[in-house]
């Protein structure tokens, strides 16, 4: 079932084509990180309805892989370990890869932040790093709460 959903999503993403630029705070719908998934690996109705649209998600910044990275992992609860440093670690499913529009100052792993970006759903392998992600916020920016 998860596989069907994923293929379906990939097709949907392709069909929609280019994704618009997100303006932080502008018409972005707030969604809880835990509400992105329905049962198992399937996305929720709420998330599917918001795919490729501007959203805001509150969460925490997992320790970044390297200081000059332009991405980080958003978690629903503070996670003190770098998600990509230990491949063996049991990572929770409900994490979001955040690709920043421009470099911002890193925030400690347990300070709440609000991220605004375009919601991108479906499995994707990053060309540069090989990281696999299922949910992304792209062209994103964040603020401390």
């Amino acid at each position: 079932m998860a596989g069907t959903t994923r293929r379906h999503l990939l097709l949907a993403t392709t069909a929609l084509g280019l994704v618009g630029v997100t303006r932080p705070g502008h018409a972005a719908t707030r969604i809880k990180l835990r509400d992105i998934y329905g049962r198992g690996a399937a996305f929720s109705e709420e998330a599917l309805a918001l795919a490729d649209r501007p959203v805001q998600i509150q969460g925490f910044m997992a320790p970044p892989l390297k200081p000059d990275a332009s991405f980080f992992v958003l978690t629903k609860m503070p996670m003190a370990v770098c998600p990509f440093c230990d491949k063996e670690a049991d990572w929770p499913q409900d994490i979001v890869l955040v690709r920043l529009r421009r470099q911002q100052d890193w925030v400690n792993f347990n300070l709440p932040i609000l991220v605004t970006g375009t919601l991108s759903l479906g499995t994707e392998v990053d060309e540069e790093t090989g990281f696999v992600s299922r949910v992304r916020l792209i062209d994103a920016a964040y603020e401390r709460l």
């Binding site: 990180l33 835990r34 609860m77």
Partner: peptide
Amino acid sequence: PGALKDAPRVDLTNVDTTDID
């Protein structure tokens, strides 16, 4: 993990501390 390193306490006035997460 709820402790901050060398930082003042978070102001919880408008935070829903009963949230499951």
